[in-house]
Write a protein that binds this DNA or RNA. Structure first.
Lengths: 278, 278
DNA sequence: GCGCATATGTACGATAATCGCGCAAATCGC
DNA sequence: GCGATTTGCGCGATTATCGTACATATGCGC
């Protein structure tokens, strides 16, 4: 009846188990069954069952009453990384970009209003962004995010502009919807965004989009520089050529692979009029 | 009855859902429901239910009949990475090591007979190992693996030597159990292993163990060099000092964090005599 | 040393989540 | 156009999962 939304196509056990994994993290690297229960809202017995299941599968370990995550969890993310071809295709290109531009470079995709770092090649300098693979930052304050936002369908972009609350990381961060919209317009005209200190003071960055064979933007690649190496935005602008050149090859290589290709949408939906299956 | 092993503490749905995720990968970046069913051994309807669940949760997407993994999956591995403090603690140390030794460095842990790469800092050169975060290699052929094997309890080590089948990557790879045992003995005496071309032709590497506050080896850090930079093993040996020095600070920092500390094993097991909870 | 508070491990009946078959509709290859 | 596949979904059967309960064990305050 109305007890709960009936969703016969939804496995609650799986959802709850994944919730258990996410209960762990930087501030909570070791948790007891009851800690997990409290953090997830599950019953203690249930939380314990999921923990023991995950332990059987090798994803978590335990010592005394405490549970902790084990490196096998990286396999799950690794499935994603290999499915888009990070090791074989993306990483070599990033390395070449870093080498040719003396800047660190990053390959990233959009997930809702955040940019997710998928691959990265550091520069020769000491410089190393703190966030690592799988890390996320708000889209509005990075070149990666801006180039991805600029490629959004208008309707979706308007929803983003309306719903996302954009915080300022520095005084140059663009948070205002109209200002951001103007910047995105400029990006569409130029083909790439330049950021100066919008996320980190003193960092200059440029990004270019990565297209699949149908011309859709599926990812972005950027370079980050120190002002010491590139005190003028000019320099960044000059490197955009290299970035474009390398990304063109990246696109070709990615299209040979099938993840982004979106080639065979074998069938249209049955009854419904082509719902956007997101 | 005897239909199936009754395991009231085990959630099959969670296990099956995770199996679905692992059905994807490099050669299978896009799968239909029935493909997943075949690859996992699940019923098609069940596979589809798990896929739809994962889609609801944002871990997979779909286009037409095809499903694909989404970047949110990286969050799961990210939970592990942040729980051991990769970003805050490990990465800065690795960067310093790479800078001081001009070599790429890696932080890794052991999972059964494999080494899992957890964090990495590339060297200044072009050199970049293919495998990325979450990647695995057989333990016996890398300095990382050897230093971790050398620290294993004797019983476990013997089991490893007996059960693991060790393949040769180059003609210098040590695969013989006795030879490996001798090398591990030497490592215990020296405190660190040196590898020359055991995994890749021409690569020289050295590793040191990372201890928790109880003196247990919980991870390892290594450096990899090109013969061009270090044609003599001597050079590697000289860098071990730097490696040791930095890792000592790493250990101090990690101990402040609680993941590896294994501090409060609050209670001993109830009835059983302190079973090794793996 | 003695409660009090809290956590664990396990059992068990109730319930609802999950299973897997079966079918109509839609697509592909030939 | 036809046979072979696959999808989406409904539905009854079954069993996996829930959550309460209880004995046991630990830590802490006094």
């Amino acid at each position: 009846m109305d007890k709960r939304q009936a969703r016969p196509y939804h496995s609650e056990s799986l959802a709850r188990g994944l919730m258990v994994i996410r209960a762990f993290g930087h501030d909570h690297p070791r948790l007891r069954a009851i800690d997990v229960a409290r953090r997830t809202g599950l019953n203690r017995a249930a939380a314990r069952r999921y923990l023991l299941t995950l332990q059987d599968l090798g994803y978590v370990g335990s010592k005394g009453d405490y549970f902790y995550l084990r490196p096998r969890l990286l396999d799950l993310g690794f499935s994603y990384l290999t499915s888009i071809g990070v090791e074989d295709i993306v990483q070599p290109v990033l390395s070449r970009i870093s080498e040719r531009t003396q800047a660190s470079s990053t390959f990233a995709v959009l997930d809702r209003d955040e940019v997710v770092f998928v691959a990265r090649a550091p520069s020769k300098g000491i410089f190393m962004l703190a966030t690592s693979i799988g890390g996320r930052v708000a889209a509005h304050a990075t070149t990666l995010g801006q180039v991805l936002l600029a490629a959004m369908p208008p309707a979706e972009l308007n929803r983003y502009l309306a719903e996302s609350k954009r915080v300022a990381f520095t005084k140059w961060t663009i948070t205002d919807a109209d200002a951001l919209k103007r910047k995105l317009d400029r990006i569409r005209a130029d083909g790439y965004p330049l950021c100066s200190s919008e996320q980190y003071e003193g960092i200059v960055a440029a990004a270019v989009p990565v297209h699949n064979q149908r011309g859709e933007v599926v990812a972005a690649v950027n370079i980050n520089m120190y002002p010491a190496n590139a005190s003028k935005v000019k320099v960044a602008r000059q490197y955009v050529g290299i970035l474009r050149e390398e990304v063109r090859e990246l696109e070709a290589a990615l299209q040979a692979h099938s993840y982004f290709s979106s080639a065979a949408t074998r069938r249209a939906p049955r009854n419904l009029p082509a719902l956007n299956t997101q």
